[in-house]
Amino acid sequence: MDETGKELVLALYDYQEKSPREVTMKKGDILTLLNSTNKDSWKVEVKITVNGKTYERQGFVPAAYVKKL
């Protein structure tokens, strides 16, 4: 869990989004878990840094590609 009590997951593999509802992640990324009720895909939040500014983006990733921490 992070400092706000949200559950975290670790990306086990790289994943490139295939639709606007998904998010891209790299192996080793730590993501905030938002919903894990679907056995196939979990909703997560990723933090992306562009030019020194951090943005948050929500979307789905394959459940088999992440592990709860």
Rank of each mutant, 00 (worst) to 15 (best):
K68V: 12
D29T: 06
G5T: 13
V44Q: 00
T24L: 02
K47D: 02
T37F: 09
V46M: 10
Y65C: 15
E17N: 06
T54W: 08
S36H: 07
V9L: 10
S19F: 08
K6I: 11
T32M: 10
V61W: 03
R21T: 14
G5Y: 13
K43G: 03
N38G: 09
V46I: 15
G5H: 12
Y15L: 01
R21D: 15
K47Y: 09
L33M: 02
T24G: 08
W42I: 02
K47P: 04
G52P: 00
Y55N: 05
W42M: 01
D29P: 00
S36D: 15
K27E: 05
K67T: 12
D2L: 14
V66L: 15
R21L: 14
K26C: 12
A11I: 04
Q58E: 08
Y65T: 08
E17L: 06
T49P: 03
V44E: 00
E45Y: 07
T37Y: 08
V61R: 02
R21A: 13
S36K: 06
K39S: 10
E7L: 11
D40P: 02
D40S: 11
T32D: 02
G59I: 05
E56V: 15
G5S: 13
N51Y: 07
L34C: 07
T4H: 13
K18N: 09
Y65G: 05
T49R: 09
V61N: 02
A11N: 02
Y13Q: 13
Y65N: 05
T37W: 07
S19R: 06
M25N: 01
G28T: 01
V61T: 00
K26A: 06
E17S: 15
L33E: 02
A63M: 02
Y55V: 12
N38Q: 09
K6W: 10
E45R: 10
D2T: 14
T54M: 09
V9I: 07
N35D: 15
G28H: 03
L33S: 04
S41H: 15
S41C: 15
S19K: 05
V61H: 01
M1V: 12
A63I: 04
Y15M: 01
G52T: 03
T24Q: 04
Y15P: 01
I48M: 10
N38I: 05
S36Y: 06
N51Q: 09
T4L: 12
T49W: 10
A64P: 06
L33P: 00
K26I: 07
L69E: 01
K53V: 14
V66A: 02
A11C: 14
G28M: 02
R21C: 15
T49G: 03
D29L: 04
E17C: 13
G28L: 03
V23Q: 02
P20Y: 08
I30A: 01
E3Q: 13
E7S: 11
S36V: 06
T54V: 13
S19H: 11
K6G: 11
L69I: 14
G28S: 01
L8D: 01
T24M: 03
T4G: 14
K26R: 11
V44G: 00
I48N: 05
V66W: 02
P62H: 04
Y55Q: 09
T24I: 03
P20R: 07
V23I: 14
K43S: 05
V46L: 12
M25K: 01
P62M: 04
V44K: 00
K43T: 06
L12K: 03
K47N: 08
K68H: 09
K18C: 11
W42Q: 00
Y55I: 13
Y55D: 04
Q58H: 07
E3N: 14
I30F: 05
G5I: 13
F60K: 01
K39G: 09
L34K: 03
K39L: 08
V44T: 00
E45I: 14
M1H: 14
K39Q: 11
D40T: 10
E22A: 06
E3G: 14
E22Q: 06
L12V: 06
K68I: 12
E45G: 13
Q16I: 12
L69M: 09
T49S: 11
V50A: 10
E7V: 14
Y15E: 02
L31V: 05
V50S: 09
T24N: 05
K27H: 04
N38C: 11
K39R: 11
L69Y: 07
E3V: 13
E17D: 03
K26G: 03
R57H: 06
L8F: 14
E45D: 03
T24H: 03
L69A: 04
K47Q: 11
V9R: 00
T4K: 12
G52V: 02
K43C: 15
K39W: 07
M1T: 13
N38S: 11
S19L: 07
L69D: 02
L10K: 06
N51T: 04
K6A: 11
M25G: 02
L31N: 00
V50E: 11
K6P: 13
E17R: 14
Y15I: 01
A64T: 10
V23Y: 02
K27C: 08
S19Q: 06
